[in-house]
Nucleic acid binder design. Structure first.
Length: 370
DNA sequence: CGGGTTTGACCAGCGC
DNA sequence: GCGCTGGTCAAACCCG
């Protein structure tokens, strides 16, 4: 009912000015990522996923990975590839980039373990670091390639926009100071009770977005969330929901929206870091555990089942709970994966309505030509 | 009754 | 300056 209302409202809000704005957004993305310079010719990065017997894999889309190093991501071989899509610097205006925009940088991580490994080995550096846009085997999976706006030019790396990146780094510095919560609360109260200082951009924590294919909007990631807002999304019939971690002092926020192009795809964006362990730690929880500081400890040591899913079985039952691990100048997103007993992780996940197929960015509107 | 959700209003930032 | 949009607040409401 409510959604229908919103549908009506939103569907009529497509104007030329919006399209112009979208164009500008696209320009921004291109500026930041310079993805047109990423190397498609570097065949070492283009490792096709190993053949599997699962039909899902046949439909597995290809995506791009955004790496900060020249190290290639692990080979692809997961059915349900998580697709962390972007890490956003701190000063990005929230409204200037929609979720789908954030997802423009798709990352290609073949397996959860691989993702962990890859992030552990390739921490994303906040600033002054060369970023390599790593193409995945799009050519091997043509059905999805058009979505990806494949870079066509053969330069292998490009530096990230320093302005946006340094702002992101600033945000991390704030995170590390421990004044974060205070700052956030202060900011919150200022927002409506007191006039906000002008000429002082609100600093945002780095964000991490990914898409999942799921029927449920709010995925169980082990943390408790309280919804504090819902907004209609421009050019989308689906509303965007805003969640905050309910743990005292934890300022982590999460936004959830459905893709306008594919209603089965849920786009989740995490912002901030949990300062507490997950209150819901299922038996046999594996993967990355937050330490007492709340910063995830990047690890990829998993107990791998002896099945054909050997390399990615736990990916299926993963609930990505994002932790941004920080060090002096770098951060790397990590995920907590909560194992659930399963013979067939994929089917179990479907049954439980948890994170399911992690899907590509098909929902993105085709990028505008430059 | 406590905690979570809904929803209208407000604010900030940006583009025109 | 105005309009648009994203983000947030908080009162009202719902539910166990």
């Amino acid at each position: 009912m409510n959604e229908m209302k919103e549908n009506n409202n939103i569907s009529s809000v497509c104007t030329n000015s919006m399209e112009k704005r979208e164009e500008k957004k696209e320009l921004t993305r291109t500026t930041i990522l310079k993805r047109e310079n990423f190397d498609m010719a570097n065949s070492s990065f283009i490792t096709p996923p190993p053949a599997t017997t699962t039909s899902d894999i046949d439909q597995m889309p290809s995506v791009y990975a955004l790496s900060t190093t020249a190290t290639p991501p692990p080979p692809l071989n997961s059915i349900f590839d998580m697709m962390p899509c972007d890490i956003i610097g701190g000063d990005q205006k929230a409204g200037s980039l929609g979720f789908i925009d954030l997802l423009d940088i798709n990352q290609d991580f073949g397996t959860a373990a691989s993702l962990f490994d890859w992030f552990a080995q390739n921490p994303i550096v906040g600033s002054q670091q060369q970023q390599t846009f790593v193409p995945s085997p799009a050519s091997t999976l043509p059905e999805t390639s058009e979505v990806l706006n494949n870079p066509a030019t053969p330069n292998s790396s490009a530096s990230i926009s320093s302005s946006s990146n340094e702002a992101g780094n600033d945000a991390f510095q704030q995170v590390k100071t421990g004044d974060q919560e205070e700052e956030q609360d202060h900011d919150k109260t200022k927002k409506q009770l007191k006039p906000k200082k002008k000429n002082q951009k609100r600093q945002r924590e780095p964000r991490f977005a990914f898409m999942t294919k799921s029927e449920v909007d709010h995925l169980d990631d082990g943390f408790r969330w309280r919804k504090y807002g819902q907004k209609a999304v421009k050019n989308s019939p689906y509303p965007r929901s805003y969640y905050r971690c309910t743990s005292a002092g934890c300022g982590v926020k999460k936004r959830v929206e459905r893709s306008s192009d594919d209603s089965s795809i849920v786009v989740t964006t995490y912002e901030g870091q949990h300062i507490h362990p997950s209150p819901i730690t299922p038996r046999g929880s594996i993967g990355i555990l937050t330490d007492s500081t709340g910063f995830g400890a990047a690890t990829s040591s998993f107990v791998i089942p002896q099945t054909q899913y050997q390399q990615h079985a736990y990916m299926y039952s993963s609930s990505p709970s994002l932790n941004i691990t920080t060090s002096n100048t770098s951060f790397s997103p990590t995920f907590s994966f909560h194992q659930r007993r399963s013979d067939s992780p994929a089917s179990l996940l479907r049954d439980h309505g948890l994170l399911q197929d992690i899907v590509p960015s098909q929902m993105r509107k085709e990028p505008k030509e430059e």
